[in-house]
């Protein structure tokens, strides 16, 4: 895989009042990477995402995406460049059917510009494109699921809907904030191939996860965070065997013991 950096974070720092939520975190994501970000609760993972995508204003530090400085850009501009994210707390447009949820991202300047999606110009077309994307992401086209109100969808489908919302933008990078959490084992099992497909399609992924087993299957690099700082970064195997990581993440050096009890 070519080493072409697509997203560079330099010394990102974020303080809330007196609390340092993020302390000089730097990392680089190459095109085609699947970067996993792990860490205990409150270690600053979601803040990292918020800072990258502009939803929270950084106290200091810079972010470069596709070679441009996006540190000061508003979230919609960043998404418009192709750096998309999912939300940990999913809030779809509840009053709309699932496929209508996708009309909104398809209406965005990026989706209209990158075209690719069939039609796009005339009004009704976005509905069909929406259903196409939903099928790609695992909504059965001929079932009634894509037509159901988003409010009535189960968590698994809502997570997919979040992903579909990103896909509608034809993104370069998708940041998935805990996309496996809250899902049953079988739902996760059906989700993993989806992630692998996205990776094969050339989309760079950043995944924030607590489900380490599934994450290590797809990720080629893992970054560990604790107390708002980057502990280390490396291949999944290297991270797994690192004592510092075990201590921070599991509170014990004996990873096997924790894994069996979990």
């Amino acid at each position: 895989m070519s080493e072409e950096p697509i997203l560079i974070a330099e010394e990102m720092t974020k303080t809330f009042g007196g609390i340092i939520a993020l302390n000089r975190v730097s990392f680089t994501v190459n095109r085609g990477d699947v970067l996993g970000i792990i860490g205990p609760n409150g270690s600053g993972k979601t803040t990292t995402v918020n800072c990258l995508t502009g939803f929270v204003r950084k106290t200091s530090g810079r972010v470069y995406f596709l070679g441009t400085d996006i540190s000061k850009k508003p979230p919609h501009k960043i998404a418009d460049m192709g750096l998309t994210r999912t939300f940990q707390v999913m809030r779809p447009y509840y009053s709309l059917p699932a496929y209508k949820n996708l009309v909104i991202p398809l209406f965005s300047p990026r989706a209209r510009r990158t075209g690719g999606w069939r039609g796009g110009g005339r009004l009704g077309d976005r509905d069909t494109v929406g259903i196409d994307i939903l099928e790609e992401i695992g909504f059965e086209r001929d079932s009634y699921v894509p037509y159901k109100n988003a409010a009535t969808l189960p968590t698994g489908y809502l997570k997919r809907l979040e992903l579909a919302r990103c896909l509608a933008l034809k993104p370069e990078v998708i940041i998935c904030d805990e996309i496996f959490s809250g899902l049953s084992m079988s739902e996760i099992a059906s989700m993993v191939p989806l992630i692998e497909r996205l990776q094969m399609d050339g989309i760079t992924l950043i995944m924030i996860e607590h489900r380490l087993r599934e994450l290590f299957r797809v990720a080629n690099r893992v970054m560990v965070m604790n107390f708002g700082e980057k502990l280390m970064e490396g291949s999944p195997e290297k991270v797994m065997s690192d004592d510092k990581v075990k201590e921070a993440y599991f509170g014990s050096r004996d990873i096997e013991e924790v894994m069996t009890h979990a």
Binding site: D80, F87, I104, P105
Partner: peptide
Amino acid sequence: TTDFGLVVRGVKDNDQAIRASGINV
């Protein structure tokens, strides 16, 4: 009920997701 209207209604439901979709709220 047009697509434009859907986006406007989306702003009411969840403006974060609208921003994340690259739309200027």
